[in-house]
Design a protein around this nucleic acid. Structure first.
Length: 788
DNA sequence: GCATGCAGCACTGCA
DNA sequence: TGCTGCATGC
């Protein structure tokens, strides 16, 4: 080393310390590892992002790696943005110096750069899953298949699954199975349609960019030489094609740095392969594995619960989280009577949290499915003072119908051949172009291999449409052409503004009755501001600002727009919560059938994935964790009776404190009663007679068959028999022949539903909610209840 | 061609 | 419960 070089840098030892100073030993070892394939198994809360960010910093600042030769891949835009921000602040580098992005985002970038090699039109657009489904329906129709037998959703799943595995229709064999043969035929026809329209779906982004690299050696070589360092986050969630993509890009001499946690693999149902972690170690012999097990997030109690829970899974790589922090509070479990009681309980706890100075944004309510949010939202609105909240997920901004309508106009401006967009807006607002005219246009398009746009023009010229339809269609084409001319050279937001007003969309929604239309107009206006705030980065890639905006609209669901930082409770599904942390967490709806989800309950793989989801949930909590379930739940308008989730029973009882109802409460909390919402303030206690009775948790012998976390033996694969512990907990063999939720008939009171069984045998008390007579507590010995 | 009403169905979710 | 898609009637 020459002296000038030496002088150019500060003394290495000091600087090295400064980058590694705040890291623990395995973190520092991973960050500063010499270049070779690395796998970091990072437990929840163990500083995974920190390691990734520091690794990048290390490479640049210590190994003299050019930022241009680093590519970092994440799964969500949020994660990518966070990583980018942290690298920027750590290194004071402009964020776009290195390639950081989601798999889809980076694949998209490659395709934009190399659209010719990828055999795509330069203006290709991306279909979201709705668009995809729409197109598949069209294809099914065009093939004259019966869409009750060939369910579009199933076909969509089939196609995406094939693409996720990297399989093209031509490479698929039908194994002599005619069903499969047809599926493949639809797949092929769908691909043709995409190609013709110049659109690609999400899975195609990955597959196409993979194939493009693979099939153009000079291109591949270029990127392999460029990206010496490939970093991948959430590696356990990669699917087959993503894995191949990484392998291809990394090439033979590159040293991938991948971070993952097999215990947090929760996307198996959409093609993620946990096995990729093992496979990585096989494909890259000499991989160094670092385990991050020290947790900086949660209390020891929470971690112990998480460890015990996940220990029930087989085939783990094995990791045990630990902390040198405090033991913390017990996990509180609350058995709610119904979902409204559950919500009332949560509301009360949040009031309490707030009274004691807690911030709302530190509270998260996690649930298995989005449908559960409604009862909670109602409770937040009704309580005094109101609790502000934000629901994440659900309907996303760019997926709203009115937004997609506006985008369809914009897409059509950019690409007249986009048939999907054409069909979406050709008669929206209605302008007298009916099914008949469109059928004719479609036929023309099909027969002559034209786009809908071209076919329209042809049909108009040929005069094959009726005078009215022809004129209307002509007016539509003229409208688009005029918009195209008038928007030329305008700023993006001006284009959007002009299009939504001149297309008639605003007027159309204004006519819509009530608040709904107003909301839609507000959303359209929001789209204009989104356009105003849009930063066009792809100028060098020869893409118009509009095209770039449209592409990003699909790739970004539009989270994080208005009202970002009001202090409010965070509500989201367990899936959405991955990667986040909150001081106070409520996991609610822990009932068998809801969580674990009914779909997964009979299959060991599915059940284990649900358990990992529970693990993810528990490990979101930093200080305080509540777990709730409802004995009765109204979902999709039907009452269901649940038993507590088996996952509750898998948490060691010594870590749990059961919250008992304290206050008597009006009957309005009971589902089915009509006096809505009057009692949220009464507290969360629900039942007059229910509260006192003992062992909802099965008392001392509850875990006799289970045992402590250490000596726990897994049950064999669940069969059709009742779940291991919950059965004992909530449906003891009570000798009455009755069980909760069962419908029964009584001589005098008529038909009803069993709400509660106290005690055993003929001495048992049974509470029944009769349809006509209301709730009654009866002695099993005398009531003579007949199951019906 | 368009509005209205009814039947069917909903399940986790990120690009 | 609430949305979507289809069928019916004007």
């Amino acid at each position: 080393m020459t002296s000038s070089n030496f002088l150019a840098r500060a003394p290495p030892a000091v600087q090295t310390d400064s980058l590694l100073a705040k890291l623990n030993e395995p973190q520092a070892a991973a960050v500063s590892s010499p270049a070779k394939p690395i796998l970091v198994l990072a437990g929840a809360g163990s500083g995974k992002t920190r390691v990734l960010v520091h690794r990048v910093a290390w490479l640049i600042a210590r190994e003299n790696v050019s930022p241009l030769s680093i590519i970092a891949v994440t799964f969500t835009n949020k994660a990518a943005a966070e990583m980018r921000g942290r690298i920027e602040s750590l290194l004071r580098l402009p964020g776009n110096a290195l390639w950081i992005g989601t798999f889809h985002g980076l694949a998209h970038r490659l395709l934009r750069l190399h659209w010719q090699e990828a055999r795509l039109p330069q203006t290709f657009q991306i279909l979201d899953s709705d668009d995809q489904l729409r197109l598949i329906k069209k294809v099914i129709k065009a093939l004259e298949l019966d869409d009750t037998r060939w369910v579009p959703k199933d076909i969509q799943y089939f196609i995406n699954a094939q693409k996720d595995e990297g399989r093209r229709p031509k490479a698929l064999g039908d194994d002599g199975d005619p069903t499969r043969r047809t599926m493949i035929r639809v797949y092929q026809a769908y691909e043709d349609a995409c190609q013709k329209n110049g659109v690609i779906d999400f899975a195609e982004l990955l597959l196409r960019s993979f194939e493009t690299l693979r099939d153009f050696p000079p291109l591949l070589e270029h990127y392999q030489r460029r990206f010496r360092h490939v970093l991948v986050d959430e590696f356990q969630d990669t699917n087959a094609i993503q894995y191949q993509w990484v392998r291809l890009l990394a090439g033979r001499d590159s040293m991938p740095f991948v971070v993952g946690d097999d215990d947090q693999s929760i996307y198996g149902w959409r093609g993620a392969r946990v096995e990729n972690i093992q496979r990585y170690q096989r494909d890259y012999p000499g991989t160094t594995v670092f385990r991050l097990e020290q947790n900086y997030r949660s209390t020891a109690t929470i971690l112990n619960a998480a460890n015990a829970l996940i220990a029930n899974n087989s085939e783990r790589m094995g990791k045990t989280l630990w902390t040198d922090g405090e033991r913390g509070e017990p996990i509180r479990v609350y058995a709610a009577f119904n979902e409204r009681d559950e919500a009332a309980f949560i509301v009360e706890r949040i009031h309490e949290w707030r009274r004691l100075g807690g911030r709302l944004q530190d509270c998260a309510i996690l649930y298995r499915s989005n449908a559960q949010s409604r009862a909670l939202e109602e409770a937040f609105i009704q309580t005094v003072p109101k609790i502000p909240y934000k629901v994440y997920g659900g309907q996303r901004f760019f997926e709203r119908a009115e937004i997609k309508d506006a985008l369809a106009y914009l897409r059509l401006l950019s690409n007249r051949r986009d048939d999907g967009s054409f069909e979406r807006v050709v008669n929206l607002p209605t302008r007298g172009i009916g099914a008949k005219s469109l059928d004719l246009v479609r036929d023309t398009a099909k027969a002559q291999g034209l786009s809908m746009w071209e076919a329209s023009a042809t049909a108009i010229t040929a005069g094959s449409l009726g005078p009215k339809g022809g004129a209307s269609l002509h007016a539509f084409l003229a409208l688009i052409e005029r918009l195209g001319r008038e928007t030329a050279g305008l700023a993006l937001h001006e284009i959007v503004d002009k299009v939504i007003s001149n297309s008639g969309l605003i007027d159309h929604f204004r006519k819509e009755k009530g608040e709904r239309g107003e909301g839609r107009i507000e959303n359209l206006e929001e789209l204009v501001s989104a356009a105003r705030g849009f930063q066009h980065e792809d100028a060098e890639e020869g893409m118009s600002e509009l095209d770039s905006f449209l592409a990003h609209a699909v790739l970004e669901s539009g989270e994080g727009q208005a009202g970002e930082w009001e202090d409010c409770v965070q509500m989201m599904t367990l899936h959405t919560a991955k990667g986040l942390e909150f001081p106070l967490v409520f996991m609610c709806g822990l009932e068998d059938g809801l969580f674990p989800h009914q779909r997964s309950i009979n299959d060991i793989g599915g059940l284990e994935e649900e358990r990992r989801l529970a693990y993810v949930g528990v490990t979101r909590a930093m200080r305080r964790l509540y777990v709730t379930y409802a004995e009765q739940r109204r979902l999709h308008g039907v009452d269901q009776f649940g038993t507590p989730s088996r996952f509750i029973a898998e948490i060691p009882p010594e870590l749990i404190e059961e919250v008992r109802p304290r206050v008597q409460v009006s009957r309005s909390l009971y589902s089915g009663a009509n006096t809505a919402g009057s009692s949220a303030r009464d507290g969360w206690g629900t039942r007059e007679t229910y509260g006192g009775h003992g062992d909802r948790w099965g008392g001392g012998d509850r875990r006799s068959s289970a045992s402590s976390p250490g000596g726990y033996t897994r049950p064999s694969a669940p069969t059709t028999s009742a779940p291991r512990q919950s059965a004992a907990m909530i449906e003891p063999d009570n000798g009455t022949g009755l069980k909760l939720g069962q419908r029964v008939r009584h001589g005098r009171f008529g038909d009803g539903v069993v709400l509660r069984i106290d005690g055993n045998g003929q001495g048992a008390q049974v509470e029944v909610n009769f349809e006509r007579a209301g709730r009654k507590v009866l002695m099993a010995a005398y009531a003579n209840l007949q199951p019906i």
